[in-house]
């Protein structure tokens, strides 16, 4: 999805070639990902947090809760409610100065992000509570919504919130007539189509799929398959990030209190 409302005006009018001899502008092959690094537990106060550095993207995700619902009338007596706030900071884009807080685009992304986590979190374990997920884009470089959700998923794990799975995904799209994975900002703005996808890697159910630009049925289905292959690699990075924080525990001896004595 085009990151700026203005830049989304007319997809499909690329002034220069974005792919030559099967190689993209930044030297990647169509299925390659940009550099990706995720760090878990970067904030002290938040119950869970993660920082994702993906291409030039720098996105911070932080989680609070489960905690008392505010405002109270939003309370659900059967499960926790999920709030998901996505916002870009004013200095995050290469273009003009933005504003603090979510704009219309950000509100929509927050809504579809919330639905992803409503699927993943075992909300029925925490009735009458709320879980707050904050995704702040510090620097944007295309594909911020998937990057934000990938980071937020780890922040939730870091917060110890029970989850069915760790949602993960990538953006795919059509650039110069070729299906590519992990579009950067230029490809996003000048390519013909963009399709961010989030999966549940345990079942490979699709939890989020948005699309703009024009694609045939075959292209959409091939796009889903390409996204799945690329998502597997992103998921490996998610696992590595969690192992970096929690892996040491596996090496420890176990002289804790016995179950029976508890």
């Amino acid at each position: 999805m085009a990151e700026e409302e203005t830049a989304a005006m007319a997809p499909g009018k690329a002034p220069k070639k974005l792919i030559e001899n099967g190689i993209r502008n930044d030297g990647r092959k169509p299925e390659d990902l940009r550099n990706l690094k995720i760090t878990v537990g970067v904030l002290k106060k938040a119950a869970g947090s993660a920082l994702i550095e993906w291409g030039k993207n720098r996105i911070m995700a932080g989680v609070y809760g489960p905690r008392e619902v505010f405002p109270k009338h939003n309370m659900n007596p059967n499960k926790a409610i999920i709030n998901c706030r996505y916002a870009m900071v004013p200095f995050s884009s290469l273009e003009e100065h933005g504003r603090f807080g979510p704009n219309r685009r950000a509100i929509e992304i927050g809504k579809v992000g919330k639905h992803v986590f409503e699927n993943a979190i075992l909300t029925e374990q925490f009735p009458k509570t709320m879980i707050d997920i904050n995704i702040d884009v510090l620097q944007s470089d295309g594909g911020t919504r998937v990057a934000g959700i990938v980071a937020a998923a780890l922040a939730l794990v870091d917060a110890g919130i029970p989850m069915r799975d760790i949602p993960c995904g990538v953006s795919v799209g059509k650039v110069d007539g070729t299906l590519v994975a992990d579009l950067d900002k230029t490809e996003d703005n000048l390519g013909q189509s963009d399709m961010p996808v989030i999966f549940s890697p345990r079942t490979w159910d699709i939890l989020l799929l948005q699309m703009d630009g024009m694609l045939t049925k075959k292209e959409v289905m091939d796009g889903i398959d390409l996204a799945r292959i690329a998502t597997q690699r992103v998921h490996e990075m998610q696992v590595a990030a969690l192992e970096a924080k929690y892996g040491a525990a596996a090496a420890g001896d176990d002289d804790s209190q016995d179950e029976s004595a508890a």
């Binding site: 639905h115 549940s200 699709i206 694609l215 959409v220």
Partner: peptide, 12 residues
């Protein structure tokens, strides 16, 4: 030819 998709709601 498809030109937009939107998935919402918690189901996969």
């Amino acid at each position: 030819l498809l030109c937009a998709s939107q998935k919402s709601g918690r189901a996969g």
